[in-house]
Design a protein around this nucleic acid. Structure first.
Length: 292
DNA sequence: CTCCCGTCCA
DNA sequence: TGGACTGGAG
């Protein structure tokens, strides 16, 4: 086991010199900006999020500004970031912030968890990065760094939220500002150095303290992550195509007009039906639109 | 082709 | 507790 006290200072120092300059890390970024960035980053790579984030914050600089518009505008502005339900959730969270918190993003983890679309990761990320609170923040990158450096495993294995939060809490520096840098630094380290496939151990600030490295970087033998269903030809792909058409059309679109977009008529109908059921699309007599 | 990886819900 | 959800990068 790497000693808890020795890991954090090296990560904090490395992060101070190597942190990427990202818009949501700038000092003028508001708690709302941090919240928006975390929603966008939940499933989407940094490079794709940056332009969408900048445009979003120009248009909706506060929760109240977003809450004042229909959810369909949020989904349209979400564009091709993927998982458009996140745009619905973010709009819903903005409404809840206006209703319950007088338009101010709450700092309390439990209050954040009660908002739509905010789970264990995002709640702590907002508390830590927007408000400087000393909370353990654990995403998949942090899990992998802990698995390797502390536990000596090549991969993180199946998620165990309690164990992960406890492990991160043990490593967390006492000072709030150092804790904030450590939280961000562990994620950054996992994202750019201690990557899943080909970790750059030569560039790693904690290579000398890494249990996995010390053991000769053994192959992982534990339980494997479940394999992901194929995307090509999936209902997910068809849903994405339908949503792209609805975003582009600023008027109702009939099912007949959507027919050329996908050859399998039954699958197309199923995709439309589930989008309507999920509240992402709305269907009236004159056709389909993004749900208000 | 494989990997990415947080939240919600059955 | 594990499957569904988008679209892009390697």
């Amino acid at each position: 086991m790497a000693e808890a006290g020795t890991l954090a200072p090296a990560v904090v120092a490395w992060f101070a010199r190597n942190a990427r300059d990202l818009p949501w890390r700038r000092p003028d970024c508001t708690p709302w900006g941090v919240l928006v960035s975390e929603f966008m980053l939940q499933q989407t790579q940094v490079s794709r999020v940056v332009p969408a984030f900048e445009a979003w914050m120009r248009r909706w600089p506060t929760p109240a500004a977003l809450a004042a518009e229909p959810a369909s505008e949020a989904v349209r502005a979400w564009g091709g970031l993927g998982y458009p339900r996140r745009a619905m959730w973010l709009h819903r969270a903005a409404v809840e912030i206006v209703e319950r918190h007088d338009g101010e993003v709450p700092a309390d983890v439990d209050a954040l968890l009660a908002l739509r679309g905010i789970g264990p990761y995002t709640a702590r990320a907002v508390a830590a990065f927007a408000f400087g609170l000393r909370e353990p923040v654990v995403d998949t990158n942090t899990r992998r760094v802990i698995a390797r450096a502390v536990r000596g495993h090549g991969e993180a294995g199946p998620p165990d939220a309690r164990a992960d939060l406890a492990a991160m809490a043990d490593l967390l520096p006492h000072a709030a500002s150092a804790a904030q840098s450590f939280n961000a630094g562990m994620m950054e380290l996992g994202a750019v150095v201690c990557t899943a496939r080909t970790p750059a151990c030569d560039a790693c600030p904690i290579a000398s303290r890494c249990t996995w490295r010390a053991a000769g970087s053994p192959a992982y033998n534990g339980p494997r992550r479940r394999t992901q269903a194929r995307f090509e030809g999936s209902d997910r792909q068809v849903r994405g195509i339908v949503m792209r058409e609805l975003r582009a059309a600023h008027r109702p679109v009939t099912r007949d007009e959507l027919a050329p977009a996908w050859a399998d008529a039954a699958q197309l109908a199923r995709a439309i039906d589930t989008l309507v059921a999920d509240g992402l699309a709305a269907e009236r007599a004159d056709g389909l639109t993004l749900a208000e």
